[in-house]
Design a protein around this nucleic acid. Structure first.
Lengths: 109, 109
DNA sequence: CCGTTAATTAACGGGAGGGTTAAATGACCG
DNA sequence: CGGTCATTTAACCCTCCCGTTAATTAACGG
């Protein structure tokens, strides 16, 4: 499970971590601020943040004794890019476009 | 980890499973066919398929002693939809659109 | 029937993941 | 300095995940 995409998807596979990302979409936040909505311990949150950081989904800065996290969505772009390869399997419009292109190709070989 | 999205992301967090999905994008395949490129045991593949099935990423049909798998990309649509909420954090075009809309909004309050 | 082929289930082991509490670190502040 | 606040690290559980091999189920074909 050493490849980048696996690390990203694994990071997203936890609801607490996704909630943290959602919170960070509204702006930077410190560890205690991020922990507040959940009733799990601070060390647990700290570890979730480390997982997100390893996946590149957040970056962190320190000022005084506070360490604030910042959303970095680039990995989401990568993950989305991977999924896009399957878009034709779910998107009706894409399927039509697909069929259209196939038809064009068959018209002049 | 009982929610749907978590199950989907967890299923995608394994490179073998993503490779299986890639293979299935080319068409249905039996378990042994799917196992062929990997040097892991058949039971291991069988379990990967169960994980993918639980995530709704594949469906399976049986004819005679063969059980063939079929790609079902709908969960990928869901996962993509979730990620889309963060698009403005990575997509420059989206960021511009975002800023543009914000400007419009400010023009007539 | 019996043997073969396809796939799953069972039983086990190692390691990672997510949680806990207690202790350690680091930086402010009186 | 000493205390306190924010955060991380350490040590420990327990469960789940991924792999294994051996045994089981299921269906075909002579």
């Amino acid at each position: 499970m050493t490849d980048r995409l696996s690390v990203i998807f694994a990071a997203l596979a936890d609801p607490t971590r996704r909630a943290i990302l959602a919170r960070l979409a509204e702006g930077e936040a410190t560890v205690t601020e991020l922990a507040e909505p959940f009733d799990i311990s601070l060390p647990a949150i700290s570890r979730h943040l480390k997982v997100l950081e390893n996946a590149g989904l957040i970056s962190r800065s320190r000022s005084a004794q506070w360490r604030s996290s910042r959303l970095e969505a680039e990995p989401l772009r990568e993950a989305t890019a991977w999924m896009e390869r399957y878009r034709r399997f779910w998107d009706a419009n894409f399927a039509r476009l697909d069929a259209h292109l196939k038809r064009l190709q068959e018209e002049k070989p």
